[in-house]
Computed example of a mutant assay.
Amino acid sequence: MEQVTPGDGHALARYRWWQQFSRSLFHLRLRIDAATFETWSVDVRIGGDEDGNVHAQLYRDGVNVARSALPAAFPVPGGVIEVAASAYGLKRCDYVTPDGARRQLVPDPASAEGRRAHLDRTRPGFSRALGTASVIVLIVALVVGVPQGIEQITTIPVVADTIGTFISPFQLPAWANISLVFVAIAASTERALRLRHNWLLDGSLFEGGE
């Protein structure tokens, strides 16, 4: 986990419709005592800063109190908020208590994650079908893409001289390979909207795993 630094006290910005795939915003309502609640919010700009570094901002009742590069672990009352990202969005935004219990934070209703959660609540059958389709697409991309990648590696002279060459059983035209890449990216993005991440399906082809 990265080092957490103090926030500067700025107010949490309203979520805008054009930030659907560039910003993730999650909330956690915590009971402090019998009469007091606090809302903790995690704001992540997925695109990163000018150097490409992705940071999470932590807010308490709309006021910035901490900042950290990802992966982050923010101390909050009764536990920590853990945040981690993939190439497609967040893969974890959980409230973790000392006994190891986890609770995922609630996505802001205006965010892409919030809209995906709304679809899951209102049309659960379609939501499940969409999630299943995403997994199938990523399995196909893995099965087809890995042998082709190995073939490309074994065309390098030094590799070919050492272990020989490998011919992939899948020989797709360029347009089909490009289409498969875009469809797989869309599938991983859909899974990221639900904070689903598997190192093999979502990470091996395009981001190098965990």
Rank of each mutant, 00 (worst) to 15 (best):
G203I: 07
P77C: 06
L138A: 05
D202T: 06
D161V: 06
A73K: 15
A11Q: 13
G131F: 13
D33V: 10
I163M: 07
A187E: 00
R115Q: 10
A129N: 09
L28H: 06
F170L: 04
I136K: 01
D120Y: 08
A35G: 03
Q20S: 12
L195M: 13
S204E: 15
R194Q: 11
N177P: 00
I81A: 03
R60E: 04
G7T: 04
T189E: 04
G203M: 08
N64L: 12
R116S: 02
G149V: 02
P124L: 03
A35Y: 12
V42T: 08
V83C: 02
Y88F: 15
L193F: 09
R128N: 07
A101Y: 12
L70P: 03
R128C: 06
G208D: 04
R45G: 07
E210I: 12
V158E: 08
T155S: 11
P169K: 10
T97Y: 08
L30Y: 08
V181M: 13
R196C: 06
E151T: 01
D33L: 12
D43R: 14
P75S: 07
A11F: 12
L30H: 06
V143T: 11
F170N: 01
R16W: 10
G100E: 02
A13I: 06
L205C: 01
Y59W: 14
L200K: 04
A160N: 08
E2A: 15
W40R: 02
A66E: 03
R128Y: 13
M1H: 10
N198R: 10
V96P: 00
I136Y: 15
I136H: 12
G9C: 05
T122D: 05
R102W: 11
S111N: 04
G149S: 02
Y95E: 00
R191I: 02
L90N: 01
R31I: 15
D51Q: 14
G78I: 09
A13F: 09
V159T: 04
I81Q: 02
V140R: 01
V181N: 07
G145C: 05
A87M: 15
T132G: 08
A11K: 06
V183A: 14
T132L: 15
D108S: 04
G203Y: 12
D161M: 05
W40M: 02
Q57H: 13
A72L: 08
I178P: 00
A129D: 07
H197T: 09
R123K: 08
H27P: 01
H27L: 10
Q19G: 06
